[in-house]
């Protein structure tokens, strides 16, 4: 189902933020957030600049998805995590290259460019940033 999700322009217009991890920094309250937006979610200021967010961080919490949305069927099980980047900005992303029984809170992770969604076998592939554990 969900043919409306299969919109090329919808994913296309976000490509910059999804490929390069570009967030916003509020010039008034100094908060950073992902993704970029024109107004600060904390203080409401409209004085926001784009910022390249750090590519490393720490896993704050995670879950293992066993019953996914239909667009992610046959990819299960996979891990979705809440990551705190080195500058404190947080992001929700998949944790990849790790077994479901190996993932732990607090592990150090780094950004990698991977496939997320496919708009069917003949549709476009949506790419974005995932995180993988940093190996020692």
């Amino acid at each position: 189902m969900n043919t409306f999700i299969n919109s090329v322009p919808r994913s296309w217009r976000e490509r910059k933020y999804k490929y390069r991890l570009i967030g916003g920094i509020c010039k008034k309250c100094n908060a950073t957030f992902y993704p970029y937006r024109g107004s600060c979610p904390y203080c409401g200021s409209d004085d926001i600049e784009e910022v390249n967010l750090p590519k490393k961080g720490r896993l704050i919490s995670y879950t293992i998805i066993y019953s996914p949305p239909s667009e992610f069927r046959l990819k299960q099980p996979y891990i979705v995590g809440l990551i705190e980047l080195e500058d404190g900005t947080r992001i929700i992303a998949q944790i990849t290259d790790v077994d479901v029984n190996e993932v732990k809170d607090g592990i150090e992770v780094e950004a990698v460019f991977r496939r997320y969604r496919e708009q069917g076998a003949d549709g476009i592939i949506e790419y974005g940033i995932k995180f993988r554990p940093i190996s020692d």
């Binding site: 990819k75 990849t96 460019f113 991977r114 496939r115």
Partner: peptide
């Protein structure tokens, strides 16, 4: 390659 990898994602990491 992992389920979420292809020749493009691998090229990105090598290039970075």
């Amino acid at each position: 390659p992992g389920y979420d990898e292809d020749s493009l994602t691998m090229a990105v990491e090598a290039t970075l």
